[in-house]
Every structure is written in structure tokens, then in C-alpha cells.
Write a protein that binds this DNA or RNA. Sequence first.
DNA 1: CGCCGACTTGACATTAATCAAATGTAGTGG
DNA 2: CCACTACATTTGATTAATGTCAAGTCGGCG
Lengths: 253, 253
Amino acid sequence: MIAPLQFNLAPQAPTLRTCTADQCSACSLHGVCLPTGLSDDEMQRLDSIIGRRRRVPRGASLFRTDEGFTKLYAIRVGHFKTCQLNASGEEQVTGFQMPGELLGLSAIGTQRHSCTAVALEDSEVCEIPFTQLESLLQEMPTLLRTFHALMSREITREQSAMLLLGSMRAEQRLAVFLVNMGSRYAARGYSPYNFQLRMLRDDIGNYLGLTIESVSRLLTRFRKEGLLRVSNREIEILDPDRLKALAAGTSTT
Amino acid sequence: MIAPLQFNLAPQAPTLRTCTADQCSACSLHGVCLPTGLSDDEMQRLDSIIGRRRRVPRGASLFRTDEGFTKLYAIRVGHFKTCQLNASGEEQVTGFQMPGELLGLSAIGTQRHSCTAVALEDSEVCEIPFTQLESLLQEMPTLLRTFHALMSREITREQSAMLLLGSMRAEQRLAVFLVNMGSRYAARGYSPYNFQLRMLRDDIGNYLGLTIESVSRLLTRFRKEGLLRVSNREIEILDPDRLKALAAGTSTT
DNA sequence: CGCCGACTTGACATTAATCAAATGTAGTGG
DNA sequence: CCACTACATTTGATTAATGTCAAGTCGGCG
């Protein structure tokens, strides 16, 4: 019997190379990704339109702002960040993506990418030609439902980010960020309390609407208060309850 | 011959009662709404699943957080705001919606509304039963495409809001807000320079991540600098170029 | 006329940004 | 293996932006 959640697979630095299969049916992510709920037969049809895996080395971009849109990408291995250029030319990080998540959804409306997706480490994606996906969607109600759910959840996620940026203080923002990362790892079978940050402090600050100095100071403070253990990119959440209370804004500190 | 853009329909306070027809085909919003690009025949099929119009008086909610999701809503007349409750119980405004825009998209993923939609004035919506819409989507490629474009644009819109909240100073946020409202009115055939704010200063501040006092001070400053004329809810943009420069962050002020 | 809610204005406090070093870390080549 | 370099991160001092608190004014309505 296999435990449903596998914590601390690799205590020091979990690698998250969860998905190395070439077919959705053999991919351990099919529970969080597009094939959710499909029959074997349907999954095979989806497989048939998905191009070969594509490697994206750390620092390289999968697509860039203003590029034409033809494919969606499902992350198979690795982590990405998405950035938008604001009007004055600085980049703003709009999100971090991990295995099983789709990239490119925001380009469907305009047929042109509105952001740039950069690999935070050596990564691999499945290419999903959108026109072919659209045809499949017309024939497979389950797939249509999953696809809409994924898009809708993307909207929800972004609304939460607005909440974070619009109404939380720095401390709360960072707490929310850490708890959120943890729960996303948990959804993938990893520990929510022990993970590696794949992005720079810069990226975190940029995403949270804070400076790198503020992020650094806050991490130090959380560490001193016994909430976390921090060692470079490695995070261990020592007091989840108190961190969650901070994230919820129900803390008196 | 009719002018494609109608500016200053009602100089004092444009009412925006653009759409009073009972059928999509007769509705002046079918260019910005779901029926975009449909043939007469297809539009009739869409009409057939849309329930009667529903009135929502000012201050009333169309749906509330955690309510079950069964329908999407297309705004026919009036304006709405969407609010989320943050963990500490205060509400955060996540957006303002105007005629032709869809409400409820963020609930598809969870089958439960993640926000509350409140009418800012007496309004009317078209109810679109989602299950029936899903069936239609499977049969009408054009409708599917429009629907995905609408969802995708919702994602893009929210990413812009993140940009605003994450990387702009107060002055720039308000400038972006005003320019954005103007351009949305322009897309509906009204003047981008002359419109009524339907929401309270409170709502604006909340949406922009600012206090009501900051919004008030900024409006006063913009007025004194000759950018705007402000009279209660009535806004007239006197110097669009300078306001856009502020919004773009390319201004030295 | 007077009340009430919405908005504006002013004085002050606080948060987080900015500027400036100092320290740490990973990778490279001798 | 170690010195050297290029970044990444932390830390400290100071400042600027915006929030908070407290009046006050405006405008519509009973």
C-alpha cells in the first residue's frame, strides 16, 4: 500500500521530478493537470495531440510578451515565473508555476502572449496545440469541464493575489506566500512544511509588491521568532499554526 | 449614417441604458458580449437558453461568496462591483463591471462563488444557465472561441490589476484607473473623457489598495493641476495626454 | 431647517522604500 | 584546494509615501 501523501521524499532538497513519462496516462500529474477525470480512451486522444516534451533550461523563456499564441504548455518538470512589463519598462512577476499547471492561458483572448514565462530551473513542458485542443474540447465534455475549471481557478488565483497586494501588510503577504507554496506542494504529494524556494528573493519581493530588502528582513524576523528555519533557498516551516495565523491576519503580532 | 462612436450622448450624466432588448440579436452589446461573431441562427440558439432579464436594485447582490454556482450573468444595464472577503473579514473590491461584461466566471472551477457581486446602481442582467451553455459550447465553435476569449481576457485584466497594485505608486494607480474607465466607456460608444463614477470613493480606494483619504487628495491634486474636472461622481478628463503619461509612469511629476 | 452620509482637508504616525555597506555563496580557473 | 569573481542576500541608517486619526464641509433629503 502506498501512502497518498509522501512527505519528505528527499529531506534536504526535494527535486520534484515527478513526471518523466511521455504519456498522460503514465504521468503522475494527471490528477492536477488537464487529463483529470478522463477515461483511458479519452486520455489517449489527448495524448495524441500533445507534442513531444520540450526542455527549457534555467533562465530561458518558454514564450515572451507579444509573441503569437499557438500552444498551451503543461509543466511536466520544474518551475516557472511569469512576468509582465509595466509601462515604464520594469518587469513585474505575476506568478510562479509548478508541475501540472498550465502556462499561456492569458493569451487565448488576444492570440498573443501578454507575459513572458521564464524557467526558474531546468524544466520540461508538454506542448498542447490550442486549435487541436479546441476541437477535442468540442467532443469531450469532461475535458471541456476540466479546462474551464482550470481557467476559472486561474482567475480565482489572481483575485487572491489582488487581495494580497491590495489589502495586506508586508508581513502578512510573505506569510500568505509561504503558506500558499506549502499547500501547492502538498497537493503534489510533498511536505507543505519543507520545501525549496525556486526563485530569487528579488522575484519574491517583486511578486509580493515589496523590495528585496523587506523580504530579507521579514525572513530574518520570522526566523528569529521561531516560525521558520531558513537556509538559502531551503525553507522549513517550524510553526505552521502561527504562520497561518499571520497569513490570515488573525495574529496580534 | 450612424457614427460608430457616440460621444457625449448625455453631457451631464450619461445613463448607459444601452441594452433594453430581450434578445441578443436586438441588444446593442452583442459586439462586446458573448454573442460576438455568431450567425443569426446561432444567436437564436443562445437566446433560447438565456432566462429572462433579472433586475438587481442598487446595493443588492447578484450572488454572494460561497453560494452555489449555476449561472453566469451578462450585464445588460448598470454597473457592479465584485468583492472578496479577506481572512480578517474586511471586504476587498476586486473589480468593477459594466454592460456587456460577464459575472461569475471565477466560480466555474469550484462550483461555488468566490466573490460577491453588488449592483452599484439599479441594474439588469441576463441569466445564462451554465450547464446549458456548456452544451451549446460543444456544438458552436464560434461561441466556444468567444467564451474562451472572454475568460482569458478576464485573466489578463486581473494580471493588469496585479501590476497596478504591485508596482505602481498611488498617483499612477489612480491615473490608470481613470484612463481604464474611460477606455471601457469608449469601447461601448461613449466618451472616454467624460463619465460618471458609479462607485464610492471608498470602493475606488479599496480597489486600488489606497485609503479613501488618499483617493480624495489625489483627485484634488489632479484637479488643481488641470488634469481633471471633478464634481461629485462626475469626471471630465481635461488633459488626457498628461493623465496617460502619469498612468504609463513616463511622467516626471 | 437640520440631519446624515459622503467627501475633503489637516496634523501626525507608521510602514516600507531607498541608499549604502557588509557578508555570504557558488562557480571558475590557477 | 584555494583564491577570485560575480551575484545574491543581509543588515543598518535615513527618508518618502501613504496610512491613521480627527475635524470640518458639502449636498441631498425628509
